[in-house]
Design a protein around this nucleic acid. Structure first.
Length: 298
DNA sequence: CCGCAAATAT
DNA sequence: CATATTTGCG
């Protein structure tokens, strides 16, 4: 039930589940638009799902082979054409900040610098399709709080790399934090004046490959030519269907449920030393633009 | 638009 | 019940 997995770090190593590879087209049943339109989310903690009143009819009389990916047909924007974009107005499901997403967030903030680390910039830098400013802002707030806490608390048993010089983020106490601590708070940039005076304020090693994709993808899609048969919605962790529940098909692949060490078993905090993980470019799977789901762009 | 606080959902 | 995430206000 916990949104967070107990073995998050298991995925950490993997970094990216490579949805495209792992997730075979299994849920082509519902198109994202429909899903959103249906407002898939759990209205209650545990209650029978009320019959969802059909709101939008699936508009795909087309013989489209498969638009698994998420994309909109027309790219009308700001046009007076009188178009209705349901997805734009619909309320979007609870966003789950997955480690990957969080990492991107942290990376963006780190590279941006606290100074420019404003929701809008972060969001744009992240280039995560589907991510909204509110989402980032919200998360940012908590992230700051987390950092603050870390600074205020030096002594503690955590011994979290106070200096942060080495960049060795110590293990996190499961009881202390949950999301942030769990995520590899990369380096440092804690606050101006005690962390790293070295780093100035502007260095952008980060090359957000943003718009191009959308444009190309949309263009290609519109043209009828699929760039790639599949695009991934790696973070599409929306509420599962009430009653029916399709868990993440991709989650279960490698990190099987090995004999978990029950409490008592001295499981050393063998937190994998997080190296200066770079962005994409890891072997095996090519990292793509992180995309939440089809939404407007920024 | 950003930051903070409260509310709600999970 | 605690935490995460969302929503509203300054």
């Amino acid at each position: 039930m916990r949104e967070e997995d107990s073995n998050w770090f298991a995925r950490w190593e993997e970094e990216l589940p490579a949805p495209e590879e792992l997730m075979p087209l299994s849920q082509t049943l519902i198109t994202p638009d429909l899903a959103l339109a249906f407002d898939i989310r759990n209205p209650n903690s545990s209650q029978p799902p009320p019959p969802p009143p059909p709101q939008q009819q699936p508009q795909l009389p087309n013989s489209s082979s498969q638009h698994n990916s998420a994309e909109f047909d027309s790219a009308d924007l700001g046009g007076a054409g009188g178009g209705d974009e349901p997805a734009r107005t619909l309320k979007r499901p609870r966003l789950v900040w997955t480690p990957q997403l969080h990492k991107r967030f942290v990376d963006a903030v780190a590279h941006l610098g606290i100074k420019n680390a404003v929701p809008k910039t972060i969001m744009q830098l992240m280039s995560v399709d589907g991510l909204t400013r509110e989402n980032v802002a919200s998360h940012l707030q908590k992230y700051r709080l987390y950092l603050k806490r870390m600074q205020g608390l030096s002594g503690g048993g955590g011994g979290v790399g106070g200096g942060a010089g080495g960049g060795l983020t110590s293990p996190a106490d499961p009881a202390t934090e949950h999301l942030f601590a769990s995520s590899p708070v990369p380096p440092h940039f804690l606050h101006p004046g005690a962390g790293r005076p070295n780093s100035s304020d502007h260095f952008v090693p980060y090359v957000p490959v943003a718009a191009l994709h959308h444009q190309h993808m949309a263009a290609a899609a519109a043209a009828g030519v699929g760039v790639h048969p599949y695009h991934h919605r790696q973070v599409g962790h929306f509420g599962s269907s009430p009653g029916g529940q399709f868990e993440h098909p991709f989650l279960s692949s490698r990190q099987s449920q090995a004999p978990v060490h029950r409490m008592g078993t001295p499981m050393h905090n063998a937190v994998p030393g997080y190296v200066e993980d770079l962005e994409s470019g890891t072997a095996a799977g090519a990292r793509k633009v992180l995309t939440l789901f089809p939404t407007g762009d920024d």
